[in-house]
Amino acid sequence: MIDNKIRIQGDAVVDIQRGAIGHRATWTGLTYTKAREAGKAAEAEKIIREAIVETGKIQGAQIKTQCREPENVACFTETFLTPNVEKTFEIEFTNKTADRVDLEFHHCPLLKAWQDLGFDDATCEKLCDMAMDGDRSIAKAVGFEFYLGDTIAKGGKTCQMSYFKKGK
């Protein structure tokens, strides 16, 4: 059972950002589910994943140019995960060094949009994994490794992610 709680409420910027992220998730979710209804789930998943990977590459390249210390994982995450993003996803950093950052997301606005559309847990989990291709590609574009542990979409309490230098 997916439990995607919201603790931070009533913050105008966060609410706007969650709305925009939810709108993007709605497009992706409906594209996938409509293709699935038409018997084209595999083709749609491939295309959506390719688009998300490409988006991650573009975003990762932008982050790398904006980061004052692009070899520093903590600096990368500070550039990527701005204070508003931290509040939007209710992020908790469990480790933050120049070599590795471990964090937990306590809320996901993408998942909320899919839940609001009435998608079952398996569909939410599939869409979540597709969306995570963006984070995987961002890390790769910057030159870091990425690890995804448990996720809210899989029924976890949080989404557990790590960005780290190779071998760390």
Rank of each mutant, 00 (worst) to 15 (best):
D3R: 08
D3Q: 11
N4E: 06
K5W: 09
I6G: 02
R7K: 02
A12I: 06
A12H: 03
A12E: 13
V14Y: 02
V14I: 10
R18T: 05
A20L: 14
I21E: 02
I21M: 10
G22Y: 04
H23E: 02
W27S: 09
G29I: 03
G29K: 01
G29E: 06
A35N: 04
A38P: 00
G39H: 00
G39R: 02
K40N: 07
A41Q: 09
A42N: 05
A42Q: 09
A44V: 05
A44G: 09
E45T: 13
I47K: 12
I48G: 09
R49M: 08
R49Y: 09
R49S: 10
I52K: 14
I58M: 06
Q59L: 06
K64D: 01
T65Y: 11
Q66V: 03
C67T: 15
R68I: 12
E69K: 14
N72L: 06
V73N: 08
A74S: 15
C75K: 06
C75N: 15
T77M: 14
T77D: 02
T79E: 14
L81F: 13
T82N: 07
N84V: 11
N84D: 12
V85D: 06
E86V: 15
T88N: 11
E90V: 12
I91M: 08
F93Y: 15
F93M: 11
F93P: 08
T94E: 13
K96R: 15
A98I: 04
E104A: 14
E104S: 13
F105G: 07
F105Q: 11
H106K: 13
H107I: 04
C108F: 05
P109C: 14
P109M: 15
K112R: 13
D116R: 03
D121I: 02
D121H: 10
T123L: 13
C124F: 14
C124I: 10
C124Q: 13
K126F: 12
D129S: 10
D129F: 10
M130Y: 02
M130H: 10
M132T: 12
M132W: 05
G134T: 04
I138L: 04
I138A: 04
A139D: 11
A139N: 12
A141L: 01
F144K: 05
E145V: 07
F146H: 14
D150C: 08
I152M: 11
A153M: 05
G155W: 06
G156L: 02
T158S: 09
Q160I: 04
Y163T: 01
K166I: 00
K166S: 07
K166A: 10
K166P: 00
